[in-house]
Amino acid sequence: MNLKHQYLGIVEAGRFKLLMPNSVAGGYRRLTTMKMQGTQPPELNEIHLDEHDGQAILVSGSANEVWIWSAEVVEVASAILTILIKQMLENTQTEVPH
Rank of each mutant, 00 (worst) to 15 (best):
A13D: 11
A13V: 09
A13S: 08
A13R: 02
G14T: 07
G14W: 05
R15T: 10
R15Y: 06
R15D: 09
F16W: 01
F16T: 08
K17T: 13
K17V: 15
K17P: 07
L18V: 15
L18S: 08
L18P: 05
L19D: 12
L19G: 09
M20R: 10
M20Y: 15
M20K: 12
M20A: 15
M20F: 15
M20I: 10
M20W: 14
P21I: 09
P21M: 12
P21K: 08
N22F: 14
N22I: 13
N22P: 14
S23H: 12
S23L: 14
S23V: 15
S23M: 13
V24S: 10
V24R: 03
V24K: 09
V24G: 03
A25M: 11
A25E: 14
A25K: 09
A25T: 10
A25C: 10
A25G: 06
G26S: 11
G26N: 12
G26P: 09
G26Q: 11
G27I: 14
Y28E: 13
Y28R: 01
Y28W: 13
Y28M: 08
Y28F: 15
R29Y: 03
R29M: 07
R29K: 06
R29E: 06
R29S: 08
R30P: 04
R30Y: 11
R30V: 01
L31T: 08
L31V: 06
L31G: 05
T32L: 08
T32I: 04
T33D: 02
T33H: 03
T33L: 00
M34F: 07
M34W: 08
M34V: 09
M34E: 09
M34Q: 11
K35V: 15
K35T: 15
K35R: 12
K35C: 12
M36H: 03
M36P: 01
M36N: 04
M36G: 04
M36I: 15
Q37Y: 14
Q37I: 13
Q37R: 04
G38A: 12
G38Y: 04
G38F: 05
G38S: 06
T39I: 10
T39Q: 07
Q40D: 11
Q40G: 05
Q40W: 14
P41W: 13
P42F: 12
P42A: 10
P42I: 12
E43S: 08
E43D: 06
L44A: 00
N45C: 08
N45P: 01
N45R: 05
N45V: 06
E46P: 02
E46I: 04
H48M: 08
H48E: 10
H48N: 07
H48A: 04
H48F: 11
H48I: 15
H48R: 06
L49P: 03
L49N: 03
L49E: 03
L49A: 03
L49R: 01
D50H: 00
E51P: 04
E51I: 12
H52V: 07
H52T: 02
D53F: 07
G54H: 02
G54N: 02
G54R: 01
Q55C: 08
Q55A: 07
Q55N: 13
Q55G: 05
Q55S: 13
A56G: 11
A56F: 12
A56D: 04
A56K: 01
A56N: 05
A56I: 12
I57A: 08
I57H: 05
L58N: 04
L58C: 10
L58V: 14
V59T: 07
V59G: 02
